[in-house]
Design a protein around this nucleic acid. Structure first.
Lengths: 166, 166
DNA sequence: CTATACAGTACCAAAACGGTCCGGAATCCT
DNA sequence: AGGATTCCGGACCGTTTTGGTACTGTATAG
């Protein structure tokens, strides 16, 4: 748990794919087939990434999607934000749905704020450029020496994505 | 998003409350009234915290719950683990439900693994002892200087918890 | 002006979440 | 011994979210 949605998971895979192909634009159909995910899903994610300002789109016959800026300027935190809103570990954070009207009195609120910042900071450090080059040094330094691996990781890519994308 | 469930949110509030009262045991009813949450809910959370080895319980007339070990030995990561399973940002992590059968080929898998470790590391650093004393120094150091506050935080405590718990 | 490709939005089934309830077992007190 | 208290282990259920699809509209190339 403490899980990211599949939308965000897909989005990161797709962004990584686009970034790995330099500045060229790709249309939704090609991306879908490369990443081995259904076209409607891919299309949906791409649209949201455009809205989030991470991709730029071109309509028409020779249209497609391309990165809105250099891979070094795009972070994992930004991708998650584009696909599932602001990173907020607890509710009553969107400020829109202000459920928590006792903010000033709640003794753990300040701590949650810091926890959220810590997580956000970790995700903000990781750029697309690094994602295209696994095991890069800067990523490694994110991990504490004493931290045990408690659970595995991986993507939601259920039997398909990147099966043999080369 | 990237949100913790309310169960975990409640759990942290409750653990913080118990820890703030030293080593004494409290029964579910008292905790519920102090934290301003419905008794069945509180009871459910407490049970899971016992199963997770974070609380010890005593049955009978003078029964109740107490910390299983010193607050310094209990981390936020452990509480989340007890209430919603292993911390895993992406699916196919529980190893039980191994959806992702292309692990070795997926190019972003390694990166997800590191992201997960980074988050887990951040949560593992925060102990209950620190939660009872907000704004402690070690917490502050978790936050990167350059990290912007993108969204507020807080608890899910919808109009009730800790309203006037003093 | 037609084929292509993105844009927006509505829709739906399935799963997870949040919360409640009930019968059972241990402990204390009388 | 017997009742009162308190934790234990489930099942249960309505609502929300998630994951995924479909359909109509709009811009662009040739």
């Amino acid at each position: 748990m403490l899980r990211v949605t599949k939308l965000a998971d897909y989005g990161i895979v797709m962004m990584t794919y686009v970034a790995s192909r330099g500045g060229a634009t790709h249309n939704a159909r090609d991306i879908a087939s490369e990443v081995r995910l259904p076209l409607p899903m891919v299309s949906k994610v791409l649209k949201q990434l455009v809205r989030g300002g991470l991709l730029v789109s071109q309509r028409g016959t020779k249209g497609g999607y391309g990165l809105a800026r250099r891979p070094e300027q795009i972070t994992v935190a930004q991708i998650i934000h584009a696909l599932e809103g602001p990173i907020a570990v607890t509710q009553c954070t969107d400020k829109v749905r202000g459920d928590c009207d006792i903010e000033t009195k709640c003794p753990v609120r300040t701590n949650w704020f810091m926890i959220n910042q810590a997580i956000h900071g970790a995700l903000e450090k990781i750029t697309l450029a690094e994602m295209t080059q696994p095991l890069r040094h800067q990523l490694v330094t994110l991990i504490d020496p004493g931290t045990r691996a408690e659970a595995g990781t991986g993507t939601n890519l259920t039997a398909g994505a990147y099966e043999q994308h080369g």
